[in-house]
Design a binder for these strands. Structure first.
Lengths: 208, 208
DNA sequence: CTCGTAATGGTTCTATAGTTCCGTTAGCAG
DNA sequence: CTGCTAACGGAACTATAGAACCATTACGAG
């Protein structure tokens, strides 16, 4: 009895264990950005991290499990939010940040790989959703500020407005394949502002 | 040297070849909907289609290659467009169709698998983009009709408006994991209408 | 109808992703 | 500092996805 066996790495998270985790996550990020999700080889990652292949299989088990841990680590680092003083300015800054991220050779491939992994595995999907919940919450205050300034209707759902900015960019990136340029980013922000001003994201009644 | 060897299935596309293709594509769709993209086993598909494993590998080669063919077939069947007489009505009908499709157990899993496959393979991605280009073009006329009725500004990019309807739904479905209910669909349509009316998707200048 | 060959399908073979085993290293409690 | 054992790492092993081979079936030109 007593099958109590804690996950490896939790009892002695000290020096070596932490170094192994950091090295493997870095190597995994590099490999995801270079090769994509499906061509990921855990043995290759172990080699690049200077770590035993057995260790990677023992700690993370599967490719999506490793991706989930990469996402958990990414959620901890926060991205600075801009404050331009106007809702359109702030949302345009957000849209351009998303645009730059998805167009950046390394980051773009990485995000595609992460989202692809989430399409294959529930654990990776849960980690992805947590990551975006954090990011959306980081940007929500700029909508709340707009409400406080009277630029947006009372009761506007800030998270929904932020999602409305990203959505058209991710849709192009993942689904339709249409060009993802800065004009598209600016349009996404402008469309979100138009919807906010029309009261589409306000909870009570709306639409003057 | 004459290395000229046409792809298998192109010289004699008659009875048996066509039957094999149909059976394999049907089995592939079922398997994608049930197991998802990563757990796809070409041997299992061959078994379910009542076809030799060798044939599947010879005709389609890889999993993403098979997915690309599934998408090509799907692009041929068209989905009926509604005509309610108002832009908001038409776009709401579109949003609800997308919402129903993504929430349907079989279709939802299938689309997730298809998009996931596109994240792994350029050929599947190209097929996915063609599929959505067709679908978007099918719905574009309802925006053009709104322009003709004077409901929308001259020069409105119809395809962009249609994309704006789908984008928030796919964003929830693939990226953020937020609930994808009918209220979200209606909000997506309302937001798109607000953006259209504000002239965000008009080509010249805009914003009265 | 007859024939040439495109296309299929069972079997066997191979490369490699992932597992198991066990000896070695080093975190941390006392 | 010392000892216990969590965690690591190399090597040998196994299961399976995908390739190669060749005999069989049946499309379609004449």
């Amino acid at each position: 009895m007593s099958g109590e066996r804690p996950d490896p790495g939790t009892v002695r998270p000290g020096g070596r264990t932490a170094k192994v985790r950091a090295a493997v996550l870095r190597a995994a990020g590099d490999a995801l950005a270079e090769s994509g999700f499906d061509r990921l080889d855990l043995a290759e990652i172990a080699r690049r991290a200077g770590v035993g292949k057995t260790t990677v299989y023992r700690r993370w088990g599967t490719v999506p499990g490793l991706v989930a841990d990469v996402l958990t680590e990414m959620a901890e680092g926060s991205s600075p939010r801009t404050d331009t003083g106007s809702l359109l300015g702030d949302l345009t800054a957000n849209a351009r940040l998303v645009h730059r991220t998805l167009n950046d050779p390394r980051q773009g491939r990485l995000f595609r790989a992460l989202i692809t992994a989430a399409g294959c595995d529930a654990q990776a999907a849960a980690a992805l959703h947590r990551f975006y919940r954090v990011r959306i919450a980081e940007w929500a205050p700029c909508v709340e500020a707009a409400v406080a300034r009277g630029e947006a209707p009372e009761g506007t759902d800030a998270a929904e407005a932020i999602r409305a900015v990203s959505a058209p960019l991710y849709y192009r990136f993942l689904v339709s394949g249409d060009p993802l340029d800065e004009a598209a980013a600016d349009r996404a922000a402008a469309a979100a502002v138009a919807a906010v001003e029309a009261g589409v994201f306000a909870n009570g009644a709306a639409q003057p």
